[in-house]
Every structure is written in C-alpha cells, then in structure tokens.
Amino acid sequence: MKKHILFFPSIFFILILLIFFYLLTIDRDPSKVPSALLNKNFPKFETESLLKEKKFVASKEFKDRIILVNFFASWCNPCRIEHDFIKRFSNNKKIKVIGINYKDNPKKANEWLKKLGNPYSNIALDKNGRIAIDWGVYGIPETFVVNSDGIIKYRHVGPINKKIYKKINKIINEN
C-alpha cells in the first residue's frame, strides 16, 4: 500500500524535473518578448529625415521592396557592435535598409555615421521616442523585417550577431 502511494508522486516529480531541465538547456531568453506586431502592417509615421531635406514619409519609403528597419542612436553602444552587420545588409540589393534615429542629437548622429559609415538609404528622426512606442520598441537596437506588402515578418531586440544575421537573411530570402 505504501509503495503505491510513493509511486505516482515520484514519477510526477521526475517529470517536473525533466521539464525544468529542458527549459534550462534550450536556447531561449525570457527577457525577449515576441512582438505584438508580427504579421501585421507596419505602423505608419511621418517625420523629419536626417539625411534629406524632404520629409520622411513611411508609406512612401516602405514600398515594393523588403525593408530592414533598424532603431539606433549614437549614444547606444550595442548599436556600434552590430553596425558591421547592418553595413553588410546594405550590400544586399534585394532589400532597403532604413534607420530610425532614436532620441538622438542629429549632429552627433551625423558624426557617428561619418566615422562608422552609413548603411542606411534614409533615416527617420524619432526625437521624442513616440515612433518607437508605435513599433513596440523597448530597448534599442531593435531590428524589423518588413516585406514588400508592408507586413512585419520579424523583430529582433538587441544587437545583431552572426546567428541573427543568418536568420534574417533566411527570412529575406523566403519573402
């Protein structure tokens, strides 16, 4: 009788242990939250451009091609780390790389781009961070892939590394 009682709890306990062990070992970061905007239309906005005199109108810029949207700032160190990957993306003729300069000083942003090179075909200024809120951004750098129909296909929070670079390229080729 007593053995019978102990049998089920021990099985249950081992099962819970296995689940915990599985969650520990898989490659996952609980601080990274999936975007609520996935598979939805990109949030439209109009603002000043860092590179051009003309206004930045998102609905005009996001057209016909796959767009890589990158939120960055000159004060953001991880942005510097991922910059080489963004440059590599700008060599890909299939896509257009758009930067959104988040809460930055335009002068400093220009200097930053001069020093490190400018991979962006156009840059929107988000001075007060309201555009970022519309995109559900909570920690820059953040990168989005928008397909040619204007649908958000992918979002990455944090600097792009080799693994993410490959992943984004795969998504670009699929779309």
Binding site: V33, P34, S35, A36, L37, P43, I133, D134, W135, G136, Y138
Partner: peptide
C-alpha cells in the same frame, strides 16, 4: 498599449 507591446 497591448496593440503595440502585447499582453506582456
């Protein structure tokens, strides 16, 4: 807020 950031 949930439209942008999800239920989280």
């Amino acid at each position: 807020l949930t439209d942008r950031y999800g239920d989280f």
